[in-house]
Every structure is written in structure tokens, then in C-alpha cells.
Design a protein around this nucleic acid. Structure first.
Lengths: 154, 154
DNA sequence: CCGGTTTAGTTGAGCATTCAACTAAACCGC
DNA sequence: GCGGTTTAGTTGAATGCTCAACTAAACCGG
């Protein structure tokens, strides 16, 4: 029986895995903290506003928004409640599906995003792109796409 | 004044950044969910147990443990309260520093880790290493080390 | 050795996320 | 078009995290 034997990580794999854990956790925590400090929103909410801002009429169905922002339905529902309370989005009934809800980015929400974006982009540049060679950026894209394909495709 | 102008991400950088976000979020969520389902602990708690299991006497000072597990002091303190309630660790007074606390992995904690490890390692292999070429694994290590150096060194 | 500063760790409040349960509407086969 | 199934979205409870405030002990300069 081979299936009962675990193939452990060899020392190189260990090091890679732990470095990845450390780096991705530190990167996300740093960006999250900067965004919270400078714009009063967590990164997940920033991403919701970004996706809405890119949509036609700055409007998306809740499920489309959840998929676009890489969020569960429940998470988005809770987030939308808070974003609505902040006045950054509003909900509207979907005219073509009575189950549906539309999330609409308000002018205040767009303004909040406009105010948050430069600092956040600067952070992404400083903490990610400035630390890597152009070749490494390209490698990271391919690696990320391979992982995302596997994880979101299954 | 150049400093007021934001250097936005070009389309390639956008794609890289979004792919990285999607991949790292999906990877961590998947592993976290698997660990929660199969071993009843979140990934952050698993990491705490791992670091303790590798320490002499399976014992570490709270701050050393926090650093090793990439956790804030507060986070570790809360986690330790829960892990102690599960019987997986216990706290002891530090003999050389009366402010200090030692976290000790119990036999039950070691057993829980032993039970969790094979499934988790299989998940890391399946969702990460199996999706990448050996060259990509090497690239990912170098990329992660560069990012971690920058983020944790500053 | 005394007072200010730093370090160790904890705590509570508030917020974000997960999971499971739920309502309601659309879809689909017959 | 009726009844079972799927899809859309929300909700509440439980859990984990962050931040700021706090206690207590160690350190350190004069």
C-alpha cells in the first residue's frame, strides 16, 4: 500500500513553502494595514469597489461581484451591508430576476476609491514589483496563473 | 512635482498582481478549509504546533513562538488561550524572566499534529508543488525570499 | 538604587469571515 | 402548469484577527 505513506516535503521544498508562506502573509498584511490606515477599508473591500468601478454603470449582480472579487456569497453579503452603511455602494433590485440584487458604486464610493488608489498602488509597487527583476515578475505571473488555474478550475 | 503623480500598474503588472492575488488567496483558503475539515484547526494554529514540535523540549517563549509562526503577540496570545483549552499546549512560567511565559506542546497536541500532518502535506503537494515545474519551484523560492527579505527586514 | 524607558504578555472591543440554515424565486421535466 | 431541484442572496452564531490599552517586570543612565 503506497497510499498510506506520506511523501513528506524535502528540505528544499520545505524552504520554498515556508518562504512563500512568510512572503505572501507579510505582503497581504502590510498592504491591508496600509489600506486600513490610509483609507479606512480592508483590502477585501477595496477590491469590491475596484470591481464595481470597472463594471458598466458601476453595477454588478451580487454573484458576479463575488466571483470577480474572489469572495464567497456570504462574505460579500456581509461586506455589502457595511459598504452600504458607509454610503459607498447601494443595493437595487434586479429588473430581470426577482431573486437578484444589484450592487451599485455610489459617487461617494467612487471618491473613496479614487482617494485610496494612489497610496495602495504605490504600496503594491514598493512591496512587490520593486523587489523583483522583470524576469521574476514574468515568472510570478506564470506561476500564479498555473496555481489559479488548478485551484479555481477544479 | 513628480511625487504627486501616481505611477499606475501597466496591463502586464495588473495581470500579474491579480493572478498573484487570486492564486495565493485560493491556495490559502483551500488549505485552511482542508485543515479545518480534517483536523479541526485553522492553518495558523497548525503552524504554531509545528514550530513548537521542532523546538527543544517542544517549548518556546511566547515571543519566539510568535516570531517563528509569523504571528503578532496578540494573535498568539489569543490562539494560545484556545490551544490550551483544547489541551494541545500548556503555559508555564519562564524560570529566568518573570515576565515570560513558555508555551509547551502537550502529548495530545503532538498527537493532533501527527494526525493532521499527512493530509496537510498532501494538500500542499497537490495544490502547489504538483502544479509547478522544478524550475518554477526554484523561481518561487527566490521570489518569496526576496519579498520576505524586504518585508520582514524593514 | 531610583525613576524613566523598554520589553513581555494579556485583555477586551470591534470587525471580518466561515459555516449552516434559511427564504424566495427561477428552472425543468413531464 | 405542477412539483422537485437548483440558484440567488441573506442571516446569525461562532471563530479568529486587529488595535489600543493595560499590567508587570527587566533594563539602564546617572
Amino acid at each position: 500500500m503506497l497510499s498510506v505513506m506520506t511523501r513528506w516535503l524535502d528540505p528544499d521544498e520545505q524552504q520554498t513553502w515556508r518562504a512563500f508562506l512568510t512572503a505572501s502573509r507579510a505582503l497581504m498584511e502590510t498592504l491591508d494595514r496600509e489600506l486600513q490606515r490610509d483609507a479606512g477599508m480592508p483590502h477585501a473591500y477595496y477590491e469590491i469597489l475596484v470591481r464595481l468601478s470597472e463594471a458598466p454603470q458601476r453595477t454588478l449582480r451580487m454573484s458576479e461581484l463575488a466571483d470577480a472579487a474572489g469572495s464567497s456569497r456570504s462574505r460579500l453579503s456581509h461586506a455589502a451591508t457595511r459598504l452600504e452603511a458607509s454610503g459607498w455602494i447601494r443595493r437595487e433590485d434586479c429588473p430581470t430576476d426577482r431573486r437578484g440584487q444589484l450592487a451599485v458604486l455610489t459617487d461617494e464610493g467612487f471618491a473613496a476609491l479614487r482617494a485610496a488608489a494612489p497610496g495602495h498602488v504605490a504600496g503594491v509597487r514598493r512591496h512587490l514589483f520593486d523587489q523583483l527583476s522583470p524576469a521574476q515578475v514574468d515568472q510570478l505571473r506564470r506561476i500564479s496563473e498555473a496555481l489559479a488555474d488548478h485551484l479555481t478550475g477544479s
